[in-house]
């Protein structure tokens, strides 16, 4: 498994979209304002769901995306297949299937994530106010033996998040900047892959997440992300995540991101650094 599998997946996605023909959405939003698909399927960056809605659907339009994300760190691999639908640039619905391979230990963890996001107020690009959105991510483990063995309380859980995003067209160095802040209430252990709640804590915790990026030009963005995480299980300390990313938006059909990510220690295995790749096709 690896790059070749990712390429095959992306290729399949691309074919699927091309086959679906030109009778698609109207792509009414500006380039890159649909963002990418995050690891949990919601429109966002890589680790953080953003207040922006996926695809280029504007008022009164439909849009959607399919995406594949892949992370390869020291002892683990994560593959995420996701699809999203956007109506009116107001509602975003998403579905993601995560598979987490325990390369060193053997075995795998799987979960499905059903997401909905509602754009409450404001606009990413126009006006002074930020774009504000609220969202839910309902997560269901498909493999619970390991999470249960290490002390997780539930095999399903629902995250609630509130995000604010703003793009400054003429920011520092006369470049366009994007900032997104997200507050999430969650009981998930390692995004939910290790279940929900635990022996150390079984209540919702409020976590902060942030992404900051600068568009070098219309097509390239560089940035950083940070995601705070709770630590509910006593068997191993859970750590915050961060990454440094480069995103490429060659046109409104395709978006690609590459990141160097630091997931620190996961389930007791230290130094989980590595690469993250994401490809998204919009229709």
């Amino acid at each position: 498994m690896s790059l070749s599998r990712m390429l095959v997946k992306s290729f399949t996605l691309t074919i699927a979209v091309i086959a679906s023909g030109p009778a698609a959405a109207d792509f009414g939003k500006l380039l890159a304002t649909g963002g990418l698909t995050s690891v949990e399927g919601s429109g966002g960056g890589g680790l953080v769901p953003w207040a922006t809605l996926s695809s280029y659907a504007e008022e009164g339009q439909w849009g959607g995306t399919v995406a594949y994300n892949y992370a390869n760190v020291e002892d683990y691999e994560l593959g995420v297949s996701a699809l999203t639908l956007n109506y009116d640039n107001r509602w975003e619905f998403s579905y993601a299937r995560q598979q987490f391979d325990l390369v060193s230990l053997g075995g795998e963890l799987k979960q499905d994530i059903y997401g909905v996001k509602y754009h409450l107020y404001g606009d990413l690009v126009y006006g002074q106010e930020p774009q504000l959105s609220i969202g839910l991510q309902h997560k269901r483990n498909k493999t619970f033996a390991l999470p249960e063995a290490v002390g997780a309380r539930d095999d399903s859980g629902t995250d609630v998040y509130f995000s604010a995003a703003k793009a400054w067209l003429d920011g520092p160095w006369h470049r366009t900047w994007l900032v997104n802040l997200t507050l999430r209430a969650t009981k998930a252990n390692e995004m939910g892959l290790l279940g929900f709640g635990g022996d150390r804590n079984d209540s919702y915790k409020l976590q902060a997440e942030a992404s900051v990026g600068m568009f070098v030009n219309r097509h390239w963005i560089v940035g950083v992300e940070y995601r705070q995480k709770p630590s509910n299980l006593s068997f191993a300390e859970e750590h915050d995540w961060h990454d440094v990313f480069i995103g490429w938006f060659p046109n409104k059909r395709v978006a690609v991101a590459l990141a160097y990510t630091n997931l620190k220690s996961i389930a007791g295995a230290d130094n989980q650094t590595g690469m993250y790749g994401s490809i998204q096709v919009t229709f």
């Binding site: 067209l169 003429d170 006369h174 470049r175």
Partner: peptide
């Protein structure tokens, strides 16, 4: 790009 962004920011403010 720098000049493009300066102009776009001025014009975007007129969206209303």
């Amino acid at each position: 790009v720098s000049a493009q962004n300066r102009l776009l920011a001025i014009l975007a403010a007129m969206h209303k």
